[in-house]
């Protein structure tokens, strides 16, 4: 049957838009990026100078490590919030409540990330809602600036990431037969041992997929970080943006881009190996 489809010209017709999409918008730009990163800006000769600059500059290295650590932190916090929520949605709530809560989780994502972040800014800025309320309650006597802090970036990133973590986990928990949980209790298991031995191992593919997605999204995030973190955000994407747009140094920007990509692919690969998960299987 598959051989038939292979010969079928209709298949190519269906595949063409996808191939064009991947080829033109994914493969080609990355080849170009990779090429640019090894080219000197002025002479056009091949060089490793763009990479050398990254490894020689303490600032760039610092920003890079900072970005990586915070992306990991945000992923962990998102997981810590999403897993219990997903568990309650799938295993505790009734059918009706489940639909309501799911809608409440999905609803904020009907508006763009940009608008979501502006909403946070309205709440958090010096003359914002929270600052005003604290003064109204007499807790403080002056305006407080909540923006432009690492913690604010983390809050914003966690907020914009939750959906991408929670949906894969809900999917995997949905397929967990309730009788497995009952069987664990029947054999003397308690809440924690059931969680550790039955529920988490079953949800592992969902957890891994969600974590990989959230980590990738955050590592490469620009909008949320820049708006909530301002100039002090120390996020690596900002360096890439500056090289491309502010300094017109495409080659340096490309090198930074390749470094970021290599790191994230490497980390994801290591995590998959360590947890024994298979991305294609998990998806």
């Amino acid at each position: 049957m598959f051989a038939k489809i292979k010969k079928n010209k209709g298949l190519w017709l269906v595949l063409t838009p996808h191939l064009l999409w991947i080829g033109l918008l994914f493969v080609l730009p990355h080849i170009k990026l990779f090429w640019l990163s090894f080219v000197d800006k002025r002479s056009g000769a091949l060089t490793l100078a763009n990479y050398a600059k990254f490894f020689q500059s303490e600032l760039y290295r610092h920003v890079f490590v900072h970005t990586a650590l915070f992306a990991i932190l945000v992923t962990l916090i998102t997981l810590a919030i999403s897993f219990p929520t997903a568990f309650i949605v799938t295993k505790v709530l009734g059918k009706k409540m489940k639909a309501v809560v799911l809608l409440a989780i999905v609803l904020p994502y009907w508006i763009s990330e940009l608008i979501q972040v502006f909403a946070w800014m309205v709440l958090l800025r010096e003359t914002g809602v929270i600052s005003y309320m604290l003064q109204a309650l007499g807790i403080t006597s002056h305006n407080i600036e909540f923006l432009y802090k690492d913690a604010t970036i983390v809050v914003g990133l966690v907020y914009t990431s939750i959906l991408f973590m929670i949906i894969p986990i809900i999917n995997s928990l949905d397929s967990l037969d309730d009788s497995l949980i009952e069987a664990s209790y029947d054999l003397g298991g308690d809440f924690w041992s059931t969680m550790r031995e039955i529920i988490i191992p079953h949800a592992a593919p969902g957890i891994v997929v969600g974590s990989v997605m959230v980590f990738m999204l955050n590592l490469g995030n620009y909008v949320t970080v820049t708006l909530l973190g301002g100039k002090n955000s120390l996020w690596f994407t900002e360096n890439i943006y500056n090289q491309f747009i502010v300094r017109f140094n495409q080659n340096q920007g490309a090198a930074f881009g390749v470094i970021l990509l290599t790191f994230s692919v490497l980390l994801v690969w290591v995590v998959l190996k360590v947890t024994g998960q298979d991305m294609t299987e998990a998806m």
């Binding site: 009952e182 069987a183 029947d186 039955i198």
Partner: peptide
């Protein structure tokens, strides 16, 4: 007495063996 403390054990209809073990 909660289920996990009762001196009886259940063989489930669809067995409910743990597939992860």
């Amino acid at each position: 007495v909660p289920a996990n403390k009762r001196p009886c054990n259940l063989v489930f209809q669809r067995l409910a063996l743990f597939p992860m073990m």
